[in-house]
């Protein structure tokens, strides 16, 4: 089954996961690339996006599996035809066959930008670094049965803190994204909870790369 790698940036970050699937279904239709439909009484065109992205988060490494109905179309042509009819912010970067099995997707790289409107307080980077060096770090997480506590440390593989300018601190992390998975925003939640004096005014999140369990790029 073919797969496409796409980015979701700019205005498009506000499009929800379900809406994004609909958006792609329509884009395929506009591009005259008919999708195979599911069987059953109410057939739906088949598309599947791996790892739903939270609303508001940017990504340059989204994956979507699809299946075309009818004659095969060269991968580059699929990419270009879709890009002509997609909305600003959603852009197909690559189309390829034989992607790896989604179940082998294990880790992702993310960048959190902590914004401090009145300037980054002295010692923020050091304090954040020290925080994530703790042996355990329980943070509340929403679940189907209400909030539960989750230790996030075992799910963080790498983490790097930098102060780029007077107003932002970045947190680059590689975290588990499947079984178990860590929502990168939980890193910011940890800062809020344990370092209230370094709480940022706003946090932006960006997903930058996907890996398998061995740390090889996942395609």
């Amino acid at each position: 089954m073919p797969r496409l790698l796409f980015e979701k940036t700019g205005n498009a970050v506000w499009i929800s996961h379900l809406d994004l699937m609909r958006l792609f279904q329509r884009a395929f239709q506009r591009a005259k690339l008919p999708l195979k439909h599911s069987q059953g009484f109410n057939p739906r065109p088949y598309v599947a996006v791996a790892l739903p992205l939270s609303v508001g988060v940017e990504s340059v490494c989204e994956l979507l599996d699809f299946d075309l109905d009818g004659a095969s179309v060269p991968d580059d042509e699929i990419r270009d035809s879709l890009n002509r009819v997609l909305v600003d912010g959603v852009r197909v970067l690559d189309v390829y066959e034989d992607g790896q099995k989604i179940k082998n997707l294990a880790l992702l790289d993310c960048v959190l930008t902590l914004e401090y409107d009145r300037g980054v307080p002295e010692g923020t980077a050091e304090a954040v670094e020290a925080l994530f060096a703790r042996p355990s770090l329980p943070v509340m997480k929403k679940s189907k049965n209400g909030p539960v506590e989750q230790d996030i440390i075992p799910m963080i593989r790498q983490l790097r803190v930098d102060q780029n300018d007077g107003h932002t601190v970045t947190l680059e992390a590689r975290v588990c994204c499947q079984n178990p998975s860590l929502n990168p925003m939980q890193l910011a939640a940890a800062v809020d909870k344990y370092l209230p004096e370094f709480r940022p005014d706003f946090v932006k999140s960006r997903r930058v790369a996907l890996y398998d369990a061995q740390g090889n790029i996942f395609r």
Binding site: G10, N11, A12, W14, I15, S16, D19, R26, A27, R30, V55, G56, V85, L86, V87, D88, G89, F202
Partner: peptide, 18 residues
């Protein structure tokens, strides 16, 4: 941009549709 994450269905405020 800061308000949007705090409201329901933010995509209705951004424009940018096909």
């Amino acid at each position: 941009k800061r308000i949007l994450p705090t409201v329901q269905k933010p995509a209705r405020y951004t424009g940018g549709e096909f």
